[in-house]
Lab assay of single mutants.
Amino acid sequence: MKTQEELTEIVRDHFSDMGEAATLYVQVYESSLESLVGGVIFEDGRHYTFVYENEDLVYE
Rank of each mutant, 00 (worst) to 15 (best):
L36D: 00
I41K: 04
E34R: 12
M18L: 09
V51F: 07
L7K: 03
A21T: 12
T3F: 06
E53S: 12
Y52I: 06
R46P: 03
E55Y: 10
E5Y: 08
H14D: 03
A21G: 13
S31Q: 11
Y25D: 03
D17S: 15
Y25K: 02
Y59S: 02
E5I: 08
V40C: 09
H14I: 14
Y59L: 11
V37M: 08
V51P: 00
L36N: 01
L57W: 05
D44M: 06
Y59H: 06
L24F: 12
G38R: 02
A22N: 09
Y29R: 00
T49Q: 06
E6I: 08
G45Q: 01
E43S: 12
V37A: 07
A22Q: 09
M1K: 13
H14Y: 14
D56S: 14
V11P: 03
T3W: 07
T8I: 15
D44K: 01
F15I: 03
E5Q: 10
R46H: 05
S31V: 10
N54H: 08
I10E: 03
L36A: 03
E9S: 10
V37L: 06
T49M: 10
R12A: 06
G19E: 04
S16C: 14
H14G: 06
V37I: 12
V28H: 12
Y59I: 13
T23R: 10
G39I: 15
F50C: 08
I10P: 02
T8N: 05
H47V: 07
Y25I: 10
F50W: 07
V40P: 00
E5W: 10
S35Q: 12
D56I: 15
F42Y: 04
S16A: 12
H47Q: 04
Y48H: 00
F42T: 02
V58K: 12
I41P: 00
Y52C: 13
E20L: 12
T3I: 04
L33H: 08
L36W: 07
E53D: 06
I41G: 00
Q4N: 05
V11W: 06
E30Y: 13
V58M: 08
T8Y: 10
H47Y: 09
V26L: 05
E34M: 09
M18K: 06
S35D: 01
L36T: 03
S35I: 15
Q27Y: 15
K2W: 07
V40I: 14
V11L: 06
M18P: 03
E34Y: 07
D56R: 15
E9L: 10
V58S: 09
Y52S: 00
G45P: 01
F42V: 00
Q27F: 14
H14P: 02
V51D: 01
T49W: 12
V26R: 00
D17A: 15
D13V: 14
L7V: 04
H14S: 05
G38P: 00
G39M: 14
L7S: 01
Y52N: 00
E20W: 14
F15Q: 03
S35G: 06
E43C: 13
E53G: 04
Y52G: 00
L33M: 09
T23A: 08
G45A: 02
E30C: 15
D56E: 14
V51M: 05
R46V: 05
Y29D: 04
G38W: 09
Q4H: 06
Y48W: 06
D17W: 14
I41Y: 09
H47M: 07
G39P: 00
R12H: 04
F15M: 04
V58N: 06
N54G: 08
G39A: 11
E5H: 07
V37R: 13
D17C: 15
N54Q: 06
T3V: 05
F15G: 02
T3A: 03
V28W: 14
E43A: 13
Q4F: 13
E6S: 05
Y59D: 02
A21H: 11
I10F: 05
S31H: 07
T3Q: 04
T23D: 07
Y25T: 06
E43L: 12
Q4R: 10
E55Q: 11
V58Q: 09
N54E: 04
S16Y: 08
D13W: 12
V51H: 08
L7G: 02
D44L: 08
G39Y: 15
V11E: 03
L57T: 01
L36F: 07
T49K: 09
L36H: 00
Q4D: 04
Q27V: 15
